[in-house]
Amino acid sequence: MLKIDNLVVAYGGIEALKGINLEVEEGKIVTLVGANGAGKSTTLRSVVGLVKPKSGSITYNNIDLLNMKTQDIVKLGITLVPEGRRIFPNLTVLENLKLGAYFRKDTNEIKKDLEWVYSLFPILKERHWQMAGTLSGGEQQMLAVGRALMSKPKLLMMDEPSLGLAPIIVNELFNIIKEIHNQGVTILLIEQNANAALHIADIGYVIETGMIKIKGEGKELLNNDEVRKAYLGENVSN
């Protein structure tokens, strides 16, 4: 579905990605884990055209994404839930959701999707008239995910959705991610919370300073000594 080949991204001479390869198969949950500054966000931002790569290729169902504008990439069914939620605080909850469906013309389907989002996140329905800036952090993250779903994505990419959330809400969120996946949405998930991410992922990639270090099945990586030591904070010797 999504194929990244030998992608190099540089910010003013410093290479943030040094030629990474990554593949997301349709129907899978793929996760990209790694430390701060490893290049996780840059990878996702390149896919949606917010960052212009220096070299390499990104294709989606064999469509070259590199020279496309963000607004057109989104129309292909690729949506990014950006890091830090980035909801529109000056718009109501409902307006934020409607904006997610901005480019869609199928009014009736939009209504159905709105109901679906409301069923996933009942709190959003309750607060649909509120300014989004007044929501709590967890609710804002729900709104950011709901807003992304309103574009009817085939590939949903999430950048650190658990950042700054209480553990109980993180659990809830990961359950909802699984639920969304069950509805047939392919998911590419970036997480610092490697443990939670690898538990739900089919495939995991570990990225370190701009390079893919390890690739494997989610469960397999959970048991990988190197991963456990570096990302799961476990003492491997015992």
Binding site: K69, T70, V74, K75, T79, P82, L99, Y102, F103
Partner: peptide
């Protein structure tokens, strides 16, 4: 409010 995120909405 946010050019980049608006782009992400299409």
């Amino acid at each position: 409010k946010d050019h980049e995120t608006a782009k992400l909405m299409g």
